[in-house]
């Protein structure tokens, strides 16, 4: 099927995009990059009490090559930044990044020589979750927002590589 941009492709293409988004948003494989205390909140969200599996995000993959969503949970230092960048680069398209907690969003309380002031200084971020640490409900809300984003997203990335 020849791809055209959204809105110009007529019925079949837009429906196909919508179907792709629907499939993708309910099969988010996550890679938790846990470095600090926010990991405790992540565990309670991912396990049975709050149960992310209800939203189609149950699979935790411990290799970035199998993951769609990178959860950066905790403080990222300058020493660790190259590791995070490598993990991000290893993930296959399409990929999304969630900055989880105040430290990942902005450096949090650590405004000093060692800490990266927000992971968006290293990698692009889709959803920011504030809080120190964020409540599980906040996280679920943010991930539902991410699902909405994925649903609306075009899928040009599939065809961009062919051009180059």
């Amino acid at each position: 099927m020849k791809h055209k941009k959204d809105g110009k492709g007529g019925f079949i293409t837009t429906t196909f995009n919508s179907m792709l988004g629907w499939g993708r948003k309910f099969s988010l494989f996550q890679y938790p990059f846990i470095t600090a205390c926010c990991g405790m909140e992540y565990m309670s969200v991912a396990c049975a009490h709050y149960d992310l599996d209800r939203f189609g995000m149950g699979w935790t993959r411990f290799t970035p090559r199998q993951a769609d969503m990178l959860l950066v949970v905790g403080t990222i230092t300058h020493k660790e930044a190259p590791v995070l960048k490598t993990v991000y680069d290893q993930m296959t398209e399409p990929k999304w990044v969630v900055a989880f907690g105040a430290c990942a969003v902005s450096g949090g309380i650590y405004d000093n020589y060692a800490v990266v002031q927000g992971i968006d200084r290293i990698i692009p971020v889709d959803v920011y979750i504030p809080g120190c640490p964020p409540r599980p409900e906040t996280i679920i809300n943010a991930l539902i927002k991410l699902q909405e984003k994925i649903q609306k997203e075009g899928h040009e990335w599939r065809f961009q590589k062919r051009k180059s």
Partner: peptide, 9 residues
């Protein structure tokens, strides 16, 4: 700050 890798922005 003395970053190890170049920062974005």
């Amino acid at each position: 700050h003395q970053p190890k890798i170049p920062l974005r922005k």
